[in-house]
Write a protein that binds this DNA or RNA. Structure first.
Lengths: 125, 125
DNA sequence: CATGAAGTACGATTGGAGTCGTACTGATGG
DNA sequence: CCATCAGTACGACTCCAATCGTACTTCATG
């Protein structure tokens, strides 16, 4: 169970071993734009993805299939790419799989409190 | 100068006198949806509007013209309506003018910390 | 009552985002 | 080496949001 969050307290940050594959292209911390991040999070499916990563990650990154989303693969590619390009997730290639994690530290540094809102979101709530 | 905000501390909340015109149609507090609110805030012009209301309000609601936005009137109507329908602002009709305020208490109750992010936003920053 | 000002209503246009099918690529395992 | 599996690339389609011009409404004021 991940640590609970209060205010700008950091989420559970799983350390990244030093021998990971290079991340796919992503904006730097200083390039994160609030309007872009909010736009990426204004979609229920993407909120679902980020929330699940925040609450149910188990110390490693997760591939697209782990989420159990009932959508065509090409749709999922689209949404995961949108999250990465907005700077919300980091993706690394592990053989065939492209695994995602939330950029908790970067987002907490730039937009403190934002991830708490996502974590406490619930669909139709 | 408005009070500074920390975490979920309330923004400066200007009391609403009891003899104000009825607000235009808006969602109730319990109807506020995170994805809708984030979508409405994912636009630079609307971020500008909300931020200015948060930082420069002087104890009363402000009409469309107060913001000094260089856009056609019909565009401004569109954006102010979007903010109101998302539940971010409340609008009241004063004769010819339709004045706006941010629903600080409602947003703080449902999405603590969100308005701090908006207040600390800066364009091209 | 005529004029001006604040803002809406409506409609047209445009661009971008969501959705998805199909074809493709690249790694893995028999 | 071939099949399979994860995921991408590309393109088509649809739909909505952003933008704005024009006409209209409404109130205030001379």
């Amino acid at each position: 169970m991940p640590a609970s969050r209060t205010g700008t307290t950091a989420f559970t940050v799983f350390p990244e071993p030093s021998d990971l594959p290079e991340p796919l292209p992503e904006p730097g911390v200083d390039e994160l734009r609030l309007e872009t991040v909010l736009g990426a999070l204004s979609d229920p499916l993407r909120l679902t993805i980020v929330r699940k990563l925040l609450l149910e990650s188990e110390g490693f990154d997760h591939s697209c299939g782990w989420f159990g989303l009932d959508r065509p693969k090409s749709s999922l590619t689209h949404h995961f790419k949108a999250l990465r390009e907005a700077g919300i997730t980091r993706q690394r290639q592990y053989g065939l799989e492209r695994r995602s994690r939330v950029r908790v530290e970067d987002l907490d540094a730039r937009f403190p409190g934002l991830l708490d809102l996502v974590a406490s979101w619930s669909p139709q709530g």
